[in-house]
Amino acid sequence: MTPAAQVFSASQILQEILDGKRAKSSLQQWSKTNRYAGSKDRRAIRDFVYDSLRIKRSALSKIMAPHSGRNWAVGVLLETNEDLEKYFNDETYASPRLTDKEKFAIQKAKEYKSPPDEEFNVPAFLWPIWTADLGDEAVTVAKTLCQRAPAFLRVNIRKTTIEKAQKILSGDGIQTVKHPSIITALRVTEGQNKIKNCMAYKDGFVEIQDASSQASVIDLPRDSNLKILDYCCGSGGKSLALDAWTEGKIFAYDISPDRSFNLKTRAERSNAQITKISKPIKEMFDVIFCDVPCSGSGSWRRDPDGKWKLNAHSWKNLLNTQIEVLNEAKELLKTDGILIYATCSVLLSENYKQLEKFCSLNPEFEIKKAHQFLPSDLGDGFFYGFLKKK
Rank of each mutant, 00 (worst) to 15 (best):
M1C: 09
T2Q: 13
P3K: 04
I17M: 03
D19F: 05
D19T: 02
K21E: 06
K21D: 02
K21P: 06
S26Y: 05
L27R: 07
Q28D: 13
T33Q: 13
S39Q: 12
S39G: 06
D41E: 08
R42M: 13
R43T: 12
I45W: 01
D47N: 13
V49S: 07
Y50F: 11
Y50D: 00
D51W: 00
D51R: 14
L53K: 02
R54V: 05
R54M: 02
I55L: 10
K62S: 06
I63M: 09
M64Q: 15
R70D: 04
N71F: 10
V76T: 13
N81P: 02
D83A: 12
K86T: 10
N89L: 01
D100R: 04
E102N: 10
K103W: 14
A105F: 03
K108R: 12
K108L: 15
K110P: 09
S114K: 15
P115E: 03
D117Y: 15
N121L: 06
W130Q: 06
W130T: 07
W130A: 00
E137S: 14
A138M: 06
T140S: 15
F152N: 00
V155M: 06
E163M: 04
G171T: 05
H179W: 02
I182H: 11
I183G: 07
R187P: 03
E190S: 13
I195Q: 08
N197G: 15
K202Q: 11
F205R: 02
S216W: 09
I218A: 01
L220M: 11
D223R: 14
S224N: 08
L226F: 14
K227I: 13
L229Y: 07
L229P: 02
G234E: 06
S239E: 02
A241V: 00
A244C: 01
K249Q: 15
A252S: 14
Y253L: 12
Y253A: 01
Y253T: 03
R259S: 02
R266K: 15
A267L: 01
R269V: 01
S270I: 04
A272E: 07
Q273C: 14
K279T: 07
P280W: 14
I281W: 01
F289W: 15
D291I: 11
G298D: 05
S299R: 11
R302E: 05
K309Q: 08
N311Y: 08
L319M: 05
T321G: 00
T321Y: 06
E324T: 04
L333R: 09
D336N: 12
D336W: 08
Y341W: 10
T343C: 09
L347I: 09
Y352T: 14
L355S: 13
E356L: 12
E364Y: 02
F365V: 11
F373L: 08
S376L: 12
D377G: 11
G379I: 09
G381A: 08
K388N: 11
K388R: 11
